[in-house]
Amino acid sequence: MPAFSLDPPQSAWCAELRALAAERLRPLAEKGEPGHVNRALVAELGQLGLLERLFTSGAVDLCLMRESLAYACTEAETALALQGLGAHPVHAHGTPAQRERWLPRVADGTAIAAFALSEPAAGSDAAALELRAEAGASDPVAEPEGGARWRLTGEKCWISNAPEADFYTVFARTTPGAGARGVTAFLVPADRPGLTGTGLDMLSPHPIGTLSFDAVPVTADDVLGEVDRGFRVAMGTLNLFRPSVGAFAVGMAQAALDATLAHTAQREAFGGKLKDLQSVAHQVAEMALRTEAARLMVYAAATAYDEGAADVPKRAAMAKLLATETAQYVVDQAVQLHGARALRRGHLLEHLYREVRAPRIYEGASEVQRGIIAKELYATREAAQ
């Protein structure tokens, strides 16, 4: 696919997704309880076949889905994205038994997935995580089949879909003092003994919580990928999903831009329409310029991922950074041009204003993305010398 344009079938599919989001998904989203998993909404995403596409399509299709859904229903977009984020490590690194047990249920919306990487003292610095996977004797009471090889002890924090998910992709330290090289990924069902969680009251409407691991038993059958190589599992997942976080942001920015175009074209002020004021027209042009630039970078990064390019980490970081910062700018300017009406509860821009802040932090804050970009640039320079 060309990196910088959509072909007619893709454009038609995006229009269909926007219509589905507005007509079938938004009503379900509005019935959901903020801060809790909306299982009816997830099930509908499964019925529409969108969750299945998480495992059968590439990064470009993922971005198309996330941008299109975000434009009309951010809750549906987030529900889809969280299913993908939590289950992608199973799809990419799971054993046949793990995949057979969980992926069909994720795809039909009957099992909720979660990606458990961040910790209270290791959010942006993921390589510093401290959740311990300690080898220990097996306890015959309430053990997984085959007995425990490790016990997970510690906490995870800021975990989307926690504590209501049905299983978690958990990253734990199997080798102390080894940094990123001593982390292992585990698939941990929510019903394991010793695993508890608490929801957090956050600005974003989707569920986010903490997880507490009190000697939670896991076995070799729960490992995703290889022991001590779990950081690669995490970074591989983030390299796929970071451009699509950018697509989510672009969808919100486009929704804010379109709302602003409609408002300024009809709003009477100072003896004419708002759009006739040069200061307003130039501001709208700047919003459109930045939105399109972000969109191009997102789809260029997604195309690079699908083609197996060597510079995916840099491109993914650039796409997420530019798009999320752009969306924050565009939504803020849209609020400014709408005035006080945009701050009323229930207004589209009031909703977007709350939603747009978090993507600059999760899956690597903007500062982390800048660090990744710089690291990759210097590594490329050194390799060329």
Rank of each mutant, 00 (worst) to 15 (best):
P2E: 10
L17M: 13
L20K: 12
R26V: 10
L28T: 11
E30Q: 15
N38R: 06
T56L: 13
A59T: 05
V60E: 14
D61Q: 14
R66T: 08
S68H: 05
S68N: 03
L69H: 06
A70D: 03
E77M: 12
L82T: 06
L82G: 01
A92T: 03
P96R: 03
E100L: 06
P104N: 07
G109Q: 02
G109D: 07
S124H: 09
S124R: 06
A126K: 07
L129E: 02
E134V: 15
E134Y: 00
G136R: 13
S138N: 13
D139H: 11
A142D: 15
E145V: 11
G146L: 10
G146N: 07
A148Q: 14
L152R: 10
N161C: 06
A162C: 04
P163Y: 01
A165K: 03
F167Q: 04
Y168A: 06
R181W: 00
L187I: 10
P189N: 03
A190Q: 07
G197P: 03
L200T: 06
D201V: 11
D201E: 14
T210K: 13
P217A: 09
D222K: 08
S244C: 12
Q254R: 15
Q254V: 00
A255I: 01
L261W: 11
H263T: 04
T264E: 03
E268V: 14
K273F: 11
K275F: 08
Q283I: 00
R295D: 01
V298Y: 06
A301V: 08
A310T: 14
A316C: 06
K320N: 00
L321S: 02
T324A: 09
E325T: 10
V330I: 14
Q336Y: 13
A340P: 01
R341M: 07
L348Y: 12
L349V: 12
R357S: 09
R357A: 13
A358I: 14
P359Y: 11
Y362M: 11
S366T: 10
E367C: 00
I373L: 03
A374I: 05
Y378R: 08
A379W: 01
T380D: 11
T380V: 00
Q385F: 09
